[in-house]
Design a protein around this nucleic acid. Sequence first.
DNA 1: ATACAATATGACCGTTTGGTCACAGCAATC
DNA 2: GATTGCTGTGACCAAACGGTCATATTGTAT
Lengths: 227, 227
Amino acid sequence: MPTKTFLKLSENKRAQIENAAIHEFAQNGLHGASVNALVEGSGIAKGSYYQYFSGMDDVFQHVLSIARQKKLALANELSSSDAREIFAYLRWLFQVEILFELREPELSSIEHHAFLENVNSRAPRDENAPLIGGPSFFNEFLAQGILADDVATWVDTKLAAHLLGAAYHLMTRQLIVRLGDSADALRSGKTDIREDPLTQSMLDNLMDLLEAGLAREPAIRKDFYSK
Amino acid sequence: MPTKTFLKLSENKRAQIENAAIHEFAQNGLHGASVNALVEGSGIAKGSYYQYFSGMDDVFQHVLSIARQKKLALANELSSSDAREIFAYLRWLFQVEILFELREPELSSIEHHAFLENVNSRAPRDENAPLIGGPSFFNEFLAQGILADDVATWVDTKLAAHLLGAAYHLMTRQLIVRLGDSADALRSGKTDIREDPLTQSMLDNLMDLLEAGLAREPAIRKDFYSK
DNA sequence: ATACAATATGACCGTTTGGTCACAGCAATC
DNA sequence: GATTGCTGTGACCAAACGGTCATATTGTAT
């Protein structure tokens, strides 16, 4: 984490440093970034930089925490109408993710980088943080779903949690591509995402895919094939 | 692609170079690898290396093609009993992927790196290659499924294709972790994956998740909730 | 005004990076 | 033996890398 010296910095100076880091990491991820680029982008001396952060990892973690903070704020802003039902909650999660990607594309990119670079490594995950979209998050999510009788008991929660995690992290960009021109209205807030027909129809489709797989007994499913 | 000089090399020398590259890329991906490491691992002079390849990308593409080749060979080896039904084919795909990860973990890692680094970048995908697991592959897969009446017509194939792609690339390692000790028997070939109860039960669960979402009319689904 | 601590600075360090190139070795042709 | 063309080599390059540190500047307490 940053030193106390950094935390004492003036608002705009800190913002300048953070924005440069956000820009760099969003483009190149953690592994692709360079300290020199971070420093030059910040407009301060290199020595100062090392007085604020212990190294690149430190900066990345800090920026990542900013991203998560902002997403949390956005999530609070977009209150969910009926989060009790578990698939309504999942749908709400995707809406938050879409809005976050639209409004804070760089911070969103950083989160994706963090997720993917974590997946990529064979190192054991950090299970300590029950983060939104993290490895243990959807596990807990599904466990709750079973308790609430929204998810079928036969579902292998660990397996399904990974499936949800993959969908959660990899689907958003595709959804946004599909939004096309109507993305602008969502980004600016002119359209409420909860009432945007295109978004909702895509989410209908996606949620149907997921919900059908999670909510039903396979024996019952087999009896009522669509064909 | 490699120069003709490289293709004229003796078997063991070429293998030595390729193995070094495989090792390096499996560990660090394309972006994390270094030319120097590739050269030193190969035991040849740097000048020679640049006589074989135009640069790191070139080596990576070559190694990637090796990986795809080997996976194809493995796929041919593991003949599918009933590939006509589309979900049986999907199940077979996952089995191939599991075996590939078990028997050629480094090549598999390279493939995953290629996929993830591609996802990560905002650059447009290469749609020219209808590769197994590639962006257009599952699209075509689902289109066929609809024709064969295995997939419901209401399914948004592009959306679902991305979901399948995500599952395909991110689930395998989790599946293998869950295999635990029985992985060794599969790796050595002592157990046929098509008859391994643990594998099949996990695939049952995974396929149920996917199949239920893809095969059924949402209206029908809603009538027959498991609860 | 003085003293002392906290902060800011960029020149500088050794290392590693991707890439080149003049030269050496070698086999085939004349 | 001389000539030619292909292959192999590692010293060498400029640039970039992460990181340090003596020094300069600023802030604060006395």
